[in-house]
Amino acid sequence: MNKIIKRDRMTVVWAVLLLTLTSGTPVVRGVTYDLVAGEFDTLMPDGVTVRMWGFGLSGQAVTVPGPVLTVPVGDHNLTINLTNNLPVPVSLVIPGLPSALTPVYHQAGDPYAGRVRSLTAEAAPGGGQRTYTWTDIRPGTFVYHSGTQMQIQIQMGLYGALKHDFAASQAYADPATAYQTDIVLLYSEVDPSVHAAVQSGEYGPSGTITSTVSYWPSYFLINGESYTPGQAPIPAGVVGQKVLLRFLNAGLRTHVPIIHNHIGKLISEDGNLLPFFRDQYEVMLAAGKTSDLLLTPAAAGPITVYDRKLDLTTGMESSGGMLVKLDVAPLQTQPGLWKKPIRNRLGRV
């Protein structure tokens, strides 16, 4: 860590302190996460290795998607300290959460001079740090992602889910949004040719790929994985109890998850409670969108959630892609599950 970056970080701290003091409000309380951006190679189920960029908690592995971040109930402030181990500048934005931006523009002499590179302040490449804060966070499900060269960095994997509940096991202020189990389902895509070009330095003005206009994904992921037959289902609580499915799309295309054999209640969009809930078996999950769907399984057993856009392939192989199984436990076998948090497939609450 070099001195300049330390100074950057201190500036932010001082700015926050100053802001707090001058506005006369109590000292900002809130949860803090230390995130690291880095790269790794992942093996797709069809045997292809793809370079990914991801986020990880400090001291843990970098993953795609990044860790699910939770702003605890009663807390309305979030601080993320980002350490950037990638060779390019990276930043963090959370669409849907109002915040001031400090955009960074390409400088004179750059082929894109005058155009915005980052929608907000960057963490410098090679270990640079930057602190981001959000206040007055409202309840909801949000995507956090890089705000730098988004057309590349998001498809490279720099995204994750953020959730904040109104009350314990209640998503929004409306009591009808109470649930027993919540499951994060984050959709994204991979165009391996872009990843390969980025890895080899061939993406850019003088490279083999100069823009994202020919984006053509061939891997379709939920929580970073393309479905493989026999994949372990995600525990979805107990029959008759409410499951909150938090759908997020960090991909560049629309997907339409369908809940096989079930009807849910669509309760939110982009972390905003809908004025009226809608009974739907599908969620029109546009690029960048989040939607929460409440489901009350009437029977124990598996529930299949599949993309009706039919991106159900892994490379050229069928029976893959954006399909996931949930598993609803029968009532008698798990009597103690009431209000007990259940871990999803990624092992996070």
Binding site: N261, A298, Y306
Partner: peptide, 18 residues
Amino acid sequence: VFPGQVGVQATGGAAGVI
């Protein structure tokens, strides 16, 4: 598959993914 129908019972054939 019958989106919008709840509790469809399927018999015969073999189990598929959905």
